[in-house]
Amino acid sequence: MSGQEVVFALLGVVAVGAGIMVVTTRQLVHAALWLVVTFGALAGGYLVLTAEFVAWVQVLIYVGAVVVLLLFGIMLTRAPIGESADLDSGNRWVAAGVALATAAVLVTVMAMGFRDDRMPLKAGGGSADELGASVFRTWVLPFEVLSVLLLASLVGAIVLSRTDIGGGADIGGGTDIGGRADEEGGA
C-alpha cells in the first residue's frame, strides 16, 4: 500500500461512515451536517486523485451551496429540532436488504474487474488550466446547453415557489410561508 492509497482509504472510510450517519441519524439537521463531512472527505479524495479543480468545485458547490439549500429546506418545512422518531418509513429492513445486495454485487464486480489495475497519478492533470482549456475548447457546446438548463431550472424554481403568479390554489396561512419561500427561490 502506497501512501496515496492509505490516505485515500482513510478518506473513503470517513466518507462512507458519514454517509451511513446521514441515512441513519434521527435528527434532520445532523443529517445535513454529516453530509458536509461526506462531501469534504470526497473532495479530499479528488485531491488525492490529482483532480484539484473538481475538488474545489465540490467544496464550493456542494458544501457551500447545496448543503445550505438543504438546510434552508429543513428550516422552511418547520422540521423539529432534536430527535424525531418517524424519519424512517416502515420498509427500512427491505431497504437494508436491497442496499446490502447492491453493495455486494457492485463491490464484487469492482473488486474482480479491477483487482490488478493500477492508475498513474501525475500531478497537474486536473488543474484549472487544463480543465478550463478542455471545457472551452472541446466541451463548449455541452457547457452552453448546461447554462440554458440551469437558467430553466432557476426560472422553474421561482415559478414554483412564488404564490402570486399562477401557482395554483393556496390555502389560508400560506402567506407567511410563501414570503419566505420567495426568498429561498431567489437564493
Binding site: 492509497e5 485515500f8 462512507v16 446521514v22 461526506t38 446490502l100 463491490v107 493500477r118 492508475m119 497519478l121
Partner: peptide, 18 residues
C-alpha cells in the same frame, strides 16, 4: 494507486444512497 480503492468507495457510497 489501485483502481479498486475509488471504485469500491463509490460502490459503497452508492448503496448507502440506495
Amino acid at each position: 494507486m489501485h483502481l479498486a480503492y475509488p471504485t469500491v468507495v463509490a460502490a459503497l457510497l452508492f448503496s448507502v444512497g440506495v
